[in-house]
Design a protein around this nucleic acid. Structure first.
Lengths: 249, 249
DNA sequence: CCTACCAATCTGGTAGGTCCAGATTGGTAT
DNA sequence: ATACCAATCTGGACCTACCAGATTGGTAGG
């Protein structure tokens, strides 16, 4: 959550490999070059390549068959969510459709999470949320970025659902949009509006008002999505090649 | 989906490391032994340890700080979903609460998925589902296990929602229960009942009958969960230490 | 021309070593 | 008690080597 690790050769091999898959439009079942050839092509050692392949294996993207080769287990489009997080951290862009799906999924999942939170939240949950809002408030007053704090708050709401799986599901959805989230929250106006929303969230959860809370999610996420959409279009990217990811600097 | 890779030293190092974290009850921020000590302790080379750590890094479980050490980024309890998939594949058991959360999350996510599927499914989606049911039928007739086919069908329903993120979210929930799913579907009675449910699913989606489809999900998942629960209790496991994972043989 | 067979080659898996440079740490001198 | 410095420890990357099974290409036999 705190600091993105700067890419070493290991991470770079992951990036190069994913780029290779993209560039060659490899599909499920296709075979990749051997480890030795990849290390040669990427200009790194086989160790680094093997580290990268271990990661891609864990993400269920590739499958290493001993004495045979490396094969694509899934097409890039239907790999796991964590693979999207990795791609985002590596500055590999997503397409418009993926971002739309993420937004829709987040609304769905978070709506249910907050409904459960209204029904099950404990006083400790409520206190934690209030503490987070207080911290959020002071940071907004100090004109500081609140990208991390926003994620923290939303995950805390999810945690109040008392279902750890829901939290773990929402986490990657936030992480993969971490890059532009930072841009989004660079605007003081946005920060203030977001703070107000959070305060309303807490009030609704405190009152156990499910329908109100659910309505707030829709409004909150959709307005954020529209904002980012406008931001991206303002950058002059053509619609069909919208780059939704881009680390600052 | 097809065959679980037999654990090599690389995967074994992952398992040993997770076991180490569990055994020593390491918490977020705690430091692990150095790579050299881990390789020594596990009896494998540092390369294998580094491969394992690369995986744990990708799963957001650990963080390797250059020239400093290896630290736990998250407690095991709130690592990513994919880390649960890995743990399941490594025969590391889950507790009762996790399985309950998974079941609840699956009902929530799949209910929404199937609602969207009713609204958005194309004729191609419908044909695919019918083909899968036909295949399912013939396998049930032939007294074959349908654990894989069941996952395939449910993911195909999710795909009909036209939201790839929802599919990617449901996938790990299925994968992490893959082990006992195989046991569950070893019963011909279960297979027959499951087949009937699937046929009803397709009918509901064909008619775009959202409420009927949603009701079916509740029934389908809950009955399956109850069955597995009874199965686990029948094994004589005490409630508090229920082992929900256990590869056959 | 087709088939069966075998050996050279290629593959991933693992081991074990080196060097590097920055972080950490503990002892020393102030 | 503090400031400082050098030995030590750490992760990052590179390199070579060996193993054994899968793959493959050519050859001998039908």
């Amino acid at each position: 959550m705190t600091v993105l690790q700067q890419a070493g050769e290991g991470s770079r091999a992951v990036k190069r490999t994913i780029e290779f898959i993209r560039h060659h439009r490899l599909q499920k079942g296709d075979r990749l070059p051997s480890e030795r050839e990849l290390s040669d092509r990427f200009g790194v050692t086989r160790s680094s390549v093997r580290e990268a392949l271990a990661v891609l294996d864990a993400l269920r993207l590739t499958e290493r068959r001993p004495k045979s080769g490396i094969f694509l287990r899934n097409a890039l489009e239907d790999s796991g969510l964590d693979s999207l997080v990795i791609q985002a951290n590596l500055d590999l862009p997503f397409d418009e459709r993926t971002m739309r799906d993420v937004s829709e999924a987040r609304v769905i999942f978070e709506t249910h999470a907050i409904r459960l939170a209204c029904a099950r939240r404990t006083d400790a949950d409520l206190n934690r949320l209030r503490g987070l809002v207080a911290n959020y408030y002071s940071r907004v007053q100090a004109e500081l970025n609140v990208a991390n704090e926003d994620v923290e708050f939303h995950l805390a709401m999810a945690a109040a659902s008392q279902n750890a799986i829901i939290v773990r599901t929402l986490t990657p959805l936030f992480l993969m949009s971490f890059q532009w989230r930072q841009k989004y929250f660079s605007s003081p106006v946005i920060r203030r509006r977001s703070l107000g929303d959070h305060q309303e969230f807490v009030a609704a959860i405190a009152d156990r008002n499910e329908s109100r809370a659910a309505a707030l999610v829709q409004k909150h996420v959709h307005s954020a999505f529209d904002e980012v959409r406008a931001l991206a279009e303002g950058n002059g990217q053509p619609e069909s090649h919208n780059q939704w990811v881009g680390r600052d600097q």
